[in-house]
Design a protein around this nucleic acid. Structure first.
Lengths: 332, 332
DNA sequence: TTGAAAGCGCTAACAG
DNA sequence: CTGTTAGCGCTTTCAA
């Protein structure tokens, strides 16, 4: 493989000049530059970026930790991350964690071995929680965040968004609302539940007016949770699922049981994944600015990498949008 | 940052011994090893893998080129790639190409700059087509392949799978079948069309019995293509879409027009993405072994990287499975 | 504007 | 089993 020395010999200049020709072309005379470029061309020279990065102690790679890349909401975020990173000269290392702390830690450690310059974490945990404040690598948490963060976080107003869904259902006239929530220990679940409670209270209803079933964000868990909700003596007339996939699972189950949506039960989701505007019925949901999440995460992370001192561990809140579609209607 | 020299001093041994302790622990006496490990621990030493890889001229990274990471079929494949790569000590670099040849080339070139050891390409193009046979980096094409490949390919029996769908529709009694195909220039589209033609012929029907509309694998394109098919004087009674997302778009449009699926029109898809078993109606489709695609791609690629001479540019065909669900039924 | 030379952190002969 | 040393390909002083 042609290296900088091959080129320097071919061009009759020093290796330093070859290096300059590619990194700071202006510091080289037009004449020499041409000579070097020609030689490089002839030799089929490609700079060894591993060597360059090694020397610069920078990998120009960003590690992205995602619980489940097959989740369409996450993959939209990753699209946003990828495109912003690419335009800044960073490459994306993908780490599918399946929510396992061990894999998370393994991947996050790639920062310590200089394989990545920073980490974007898509779930609510801090892989560097054991490190003292001054020694924490660049990290940004997005989407699912947690209390007392030591790194910047970018998230939705989950409480407000959940309240918006509940308000919508209340306005339609629903008074018994079922909820299929996410993992119980997640701050995201907690925030959305808070929003639900607040919205109910404002209409003079107690949270106990809501029947809550457990889900895990998988379509199947939405499917199964419906049985729990429909077996209550006071059946809900509307069901709010904490993501669209569970909503799709719920709708499937409701239909399998011989009921219709929204005729017999209204169903609302969260995220506004692509299929939600085409599903049968189309899904009332909360739109999250997925690409923006990704883009901002990269912006903030790059700032942490380039100028750590300028970064405060900020909390950013991105706006949601209530999208009302065919899956919600007044109770029959 | 602690390096190998810091540790060597702290432990009172040479740098070589420290290196050995971590790369070939057996070649070091138990005693020294303990000493070194303690020193490393104390110094907070982490081997600089950038330096190690640089020296080994290997990045232990695999570049994955994907047209659109938001496509759920692709993200399932990537899951498979990721998990196999991880277990082999490789990391995954993600390149979203949007089908643009330029981005494809940019990302693929990271092999030349030593940022990746090989490329897995999820669409039908060869980013190294301009390179002479001996100089081609490790590359594996999966899912969408092409003729006269210079690198290994792993794909489905697209022709057979398409034929299986057509057979299924014919058996149900459909005689006028509409097709929403993929991009016209894609070998994948061509292969599936061939399968359709073969299946029709076997029942004594000409391919002209099939009305073909253009799609691009997006849900919206399936939605729009329905108008083309339903405006024909001889309307099809069944529609075969070349992926599930177009099928979902098609079903949406058919219902918007006041018809039912499968009552008025049967619809079949391709891929068996997660939502297809929950959609309304559930989708008849072809199951592709997505995770296996990913796993095999990594296996073959690693073989190319480790022992290029043992690899023939093989063509592997993975098995499909016809999944009949609620979206297809006899014509009314 | 250019060249000589040191060195990033690591591994691998080679010698002992 | 352990140490010395050269060198991977590149950038960057420092001098000329």
């Amino acid at each position: 493989m042609a290296n900088i020395r091959t080129v320097s010999k071919l061009a009759g200049v020093s290796v330093a000049t070859v290096s300059r020709t590619f990194s700071t072309p202006d510091s080289v005379s037009e004449n020499t530059r041409k000579k070097v470029e020609k030689a490089a061309e002839k030799a089929g020279y490609r700079p060894n970026l591993m060597a360059r990065n090694f020397r610069a102690k920078r990998s120009f790679a960003i590690m992205v930790l995602v619980p489940n890349i097959a989740n369409p909401f996450f993959s939209r975020i990753i699209s946003g991350i990828e495109s912003e990173a690419q335009s800044r000269g960073y490459s994306i290392l993908l780490g599918n964690t399946n929510g396992q702390a061990e894999r998370e830690a393994d991947y996050a450690n790639m920062v310590h071995t200089f394989q990545a310059d920073g980490v974007i974490q898509l779930s609510a945990s801090d892989p560097f929680s054991d490190l003292p404040l001054g020694k924490r690598p660049a990290l940004v948490n997005i989407c699912e965040c947690y209390d007392n963060p030591l790194s910047p976080q970018i998230q939705l107003d989950n409480s407000g968004a959940a309240a918006a869904i509940i308000d919508h259902l209340l306005e339609l006239g629903h008074r018994r609302i079922g909820i299929i929530k996410g993992p119980a220990d997640s701050p995201l679940t907690r925030d959305r539940l808070e929003g639900c409670a607040a919205a109910l209270k404002q209409t003079g209803l107690e949270m106990s007016a809501a029947a809550i079933a457990q889900g895990d964000f998988s379509t199947r868990s939405g499917f199964e949770a419906v049985d729990t909700l429909l077996s209550l003596r006071k059946r809900p007339t509307a069901i709010f699922c904490f993501n669209d996939e569970m909503a799709i699972g719920a709708i499937r189950r409701i239909r399998d049981l011989g009921y219709s949506v929204p005729g017999d039960f209204s169903v609302a989701g969260f995220d506004d994944i692509a299929v939600s505007s085409f599903s049968v019925p189309t899904l009332t949901t909360i739109h999250q600015p997925a690409a923006t999440f990704g883009r901002r995460a990269v912006e903030v992370l790059c700032q942490m990498i380039d100028a750590p001192e300028t970064v405060t561990h900020s909390q950013e809140i991105l706006p949601y949008k209530l999208i009302t579609r065919g899956s919600t209607a007044p109770p029959s």
